[in-house]
Design a binder for these strands. Sequence first.
DNA 1: TTCATCGTTCGAGTATAGGCGAACTGTTGT
DNA 2: ACAACAGTTCGCCTATACTCGAACGATGAA
Lengths: 111, 111
Amino acid sequence: MNAAAPTREQLSLPAVLEALANPLRLRVVAQLAAAPEAGLSCGELLPDVSKSTASHHWRILRDAGILEHRRDGRHIRPVLRRADLDARFPGLLDVVLANARELVRPASATS
Amino acid sequence: MNAAAPTREQLSLPAVLEALANPLRLRVVAQLAAAPEAGLSCGELLPDVSKSTASHHWRILRDAGILEHRRDGRHIRPVLRRADLDARFPGLLDVVLANARELVRPASATS
DNA sequence: TTCATCGTTCGAGTATAGGCGAACTGTTGT
DNA sequence: ACAACAGTTCGCCTATACTCGAACGATGAA
């Protein structure tokens, strides 16, 4: 069950796309990319689902190699594995995130 | 069940990523992008699965708006909706396909 | 018209995704 | 030591993905 985080070389394109194909996950990845220094915790990034559901999504993102967990006290700060992703799939994360901006801003502003 | 092909404006990033997240589908999309003029048919592009399975995958790709079907005699030629994809998600298809080359060449040639 | 061909649809089976609550683990603070 | 908090894990449920074979529909050829 525990798939263990893939090394940079083990990153799989289908797995990465699969992980990013979920609106909830794509949103938190976009948030992390937009504010890497904010140090947001798991709970802060996914406040709208139960803890077990949130944990499920974090696991998929970790197993795909998109992020890793850093413990900070009793919080866990997910951090993007940007260097690994950019090395293995150049341009992919940037392009996906550039086209996902409307998911972070929940389709409100007419401006 | 029939989701009908989305217009250019209706293209959804999660749906597109989901459709491309399957190795079989990613491969045929890459093949179509590499040889748009070849006019390959559904059966030629997916010879290794049953007809019903192939049809299932074509439907997902059509429903995501990645390609459309053009009848040519008794064959059907899937064609990429490149203009629509590039307009809605600039750079996405190019980047994904650039990083999917190893799927078209099944990891053999040392050359 | 009759037949073969190509793809779709239908029904079914197995596997996985995504959701939850309850119970557990690890950390901090009292 | 103990309580509070943050995530994880474990069942469990429902929904969807993926696969197939059989039957159906459309097309072109004999």
